[in-house]
Amino acid sequence: MSDKKTDSRWRFRPEEEKHDIYSLHRQALREPPEPQEGLEPPPWWLWVISVLLIFWAGFYLGRYGGVFGPYVHVLEEGRRTERETALVPKEPETTVSGAEVYARVCAACHQPNGQGVPGVFPPLAGSEWVLKDPETPILIVLHGLQGPIEVKGTVYNNVMPEWGSKLSNEEIAAVLTYVRNSWGNQTAEITPDMVEKVRKETQERKTHWTQEELLKLKK
């Protein structure tokens, strides 16, 4: 890259300057000199902090280094030999909160206030299907529901997925008890045993319920 020609264009040539040199380069000439560096020694405590931090770093890597293998989520296990356990989900908690299950499973469609979405997802508050007997809501949650269904005088036509394979008996019992006792609903509690019983009775069923089937079952 030969920039000689360009350079000469830019090189400063005082003989061509028509202006007073000082006013032309006022800004550059008034500056202090280019910065220099002093030679003060660093404060002693900076070294102390640095050494302490490096010690801490060693400790932290030893504790949370996960033996530098391709293992993920090795947090509490630290150096334990059975590191792989970290990959396996922990046992579900023994006490299940119905409100929590509702928030994570049901609220997306039926809404946090149990009112559903008008014309699309039916309400649970005051719904005859939720309130009439304990088995019907268990059946619906276990196997899902499909096709037109009349709730509180309005017909809804949509699909509710099955949750039987995804929720435990305890969770279904807790969430149904919650649904049957919230937003003005007030009915009997549902226990895990009742869910277990219904689950056993209908274990061959692989498809969603329809309104007619449910009505036939519970005359």
Binding site: A108, V117, V120, F121, N158, V159, P161
Partner: peptide
């Protein structure tokens, strides 16, 4: 996909999120 398997829900939600999730 496991948590919300309803196709309708997703379509409504994409059309207007506030229709399903105020």
């Amino acid at each position: 996909g496991a948590r919300q398997p309803s196709e309708d829900w997703h379509l409504i939600h994409l059309y207007n999120p506030r229709a399903t999730s105020p």
